[in-house]
Design a protein around this nucleic acid. Sequence first.
DNA 1: CGAGAGTCGGGTAATTTGGGGC
DNA 2: ATTGTCCAAATTACCCGACTCT
Lengths: 69, 69
Amino acid sequence: MNAHPVDAEPLLTPSEVATLFRVDPKTVTRWAKAGKLSSIRTLGGHRRYRESEVRELLNGIPQQRPSDG
Amino acid sequence: MNAHPVDAEPLLTPSEVATLFRVDPKTVTRWAKAGKLSSIRTLGGHRRYRESEVRELLNGIPQQRPSDG
DNA sequence: CGAGAGTCGGGTAATTTGGGGC
DNA sequence: ATTGTCCAAATTACCCGACTCT
């Protein structure tokens, strides 16, 4: 039962981010610890990552245009 | 389980690509530097290659090969 | 509460990086 | 011009036990 129209940003789990980068979930944790990636923590201490943040990192630059010189 | 619909592209490690081409990982890195192969970098600086990209190169270019000569 | 999967944290081996020389 | 190999440093992957999440 979760239906609250609040500004909830799409979050990803360490495993999800790890799959996107083809690395281990542990490595993603290292990035968060290194401050290379923004991390949101659950009340239990687990980390969660912003999908938009990861997307930008994957592409290097989010604003990529096809007709860009 | 997590239910996060994220479309992740199959990525390969330098070692995997090197094995497919029967060359050294170092050589694969040279190809990436030469722009002959697209590369995605992890936050740590390591490179990841697209499986589809490598497959195309291995097959010559086409993505599918219904018949082999 | 009970059960399964995922994540955390620490430590060590393997892999990858970048440059130089043949 | 391209590939394989050497050196040192950095990053990543795997192992174990305990906790958290659904």
